[in-house]
Design a protein around this nucleic acid. Structure first.
Lengths: 213, 213
DNA sequence: GGCATAAAATGACTGACGGTCAGTCATTTT
DNA sequence: AAAATGACTGACCGTCAGTCATTTTATGCC
């Protein structure tokens, strides 16, 4: 929440500090967990005083939640590229569509599993009531942009006769929900069995769904 | 955490206290949220001192997480009944199977949405590192019992030729994951749009899945 | 370079809360 | 009736998120 920068020099410093803080926050939050991490530790890791953290984020929740943004951006880039491919009629079959989408979702997860988990906790809504209006706004804006792209891709493919005519909103939801649900389940199983079945389960799910869309 | 009861009178009192505390905890946690709720408030609501809470639960996490148990039990009852129906060959088609399972899942959710959310947060694994070994044990035991029933139902239906031959473990996961994912997504949407599409989306998902299994 | 002013950073401080434990007292046992 | 038990209490402690008066640093002007 720094005020408007006057000089470009200061603006640069600000953005550097910001990402330094976020980098430090990642390290501390993701090794100690949200409750286990303290603002003092994060400040130390970022070579900054505790007070400074509060110049950039309104509170602990806010800082934590901000770490999901790179994931949303990464997903956005993938989806954008995907939409272009669909536009150019490069995607010409249902299977192709599904395996591509599955890849995108999996790549997004792989890009930052910890960030993905924040998205889920956030979406669950129980926690993080205290975060700033601004951060909430940013998140919603990015998320709904991604949502819109996916829906448009589906609409296009339905128009082209590649997918069955269905409610595109519901379908968008179901595809994303499948990802979310499987991540949640498989991560929880992985914690006890040490085995990673996420990708194969996801593939299996998309194969099953493939026969119905 | 109460020690072994000697007299039945005392044992009765203990179990009454326990459920009084859990009832109070529900009220406070579910109106103020996990972080917003204080042990002091819960104690007050339960007409008990703060110290007493710690005779029944090792810490705040433990108390919170214990509130998911009724949901697991309820699901267990439904699934048990379902398994008996399958045993008796009352379920004779794929559609019948799916719509029944969908009903069960939805009923479980309806039984206690707040408890369901705890299951999800717990499954996510970020939070609640400090809960007691005993509670963790209980939860895992109930959860895997439910898991086993579902898998056996699927196996039976595959043997009977009602479902396609598939990896029953993956399929169990995918069905549950679909529920979890849709709950998460639709609740998050409901928070902003005030509209409840959970059931219709779930039905749609199970219809799509129906064509692939 | 030196000074004035504004912005940024600091860290000592505070209040709130999770968790503890020595002590109390009703109930049960002897 | 005396002794033992154990459920319960609440004052107390340590920790930590968040605040704010003070100090440090950067910028603009002469």
């Amino acid at each position: 929440m720094p005020s408007k920068p006057k000089s470009p020099r200061r603006a640069m410093q600000k953005s550097v500090r910001l990402s330094e803080i976020q980098k430090a926050a990642r390290e501390v939050f993701f090794t100690k967990g949200f409750a286990g991490a303290t603002m003092e530790q994060i400040a130390k890791q970022a070579r900054v005083s505790k007070g400074t953290l509060y110049l950039y984020f309104t509170n602990k929740d806010d800082l934590y939640v901000s770490l999901m943004l790179p994931v949303l951006d990464e997903l956005g880039r993938y989806l954008h590229e995907f939409a272009q491919q669909v536009e150019r009629k490069t995607i010409i079959s249902r299977d192709q569509f599904l395996s591509r989408l599955c890849e995108i979702y999996y790549a997004t997860y792989q890009f930052d599993p910890d960030g993905m988990r924040i998205i889920q906790t956030f979406q669950l809504g129980n926690h993080f009531a205290a975060m700033s209006k601004a951060t909430l706004e940013t998140i919603n804006q990015r998320a709904s942009a991604n949502y819109r792209i996916t829906r448009n891709v589906l609409l296009q493919l339905m128009r082209d006769g590649i997918l069955k005519q269905r409610d595109p909103i519901k379908l968008t939801d179901i595809l994303w929900a499948t990802l979310i649900g499987i991540i949640q389940l498989e991560e929880s199983k992985a914690r006890t069995t040490q085995k990673d079945h996420l990708k194969v389960t996801l593939l299996c799910a998309f194969e099953i769904i493939g026969e119905g869309i």
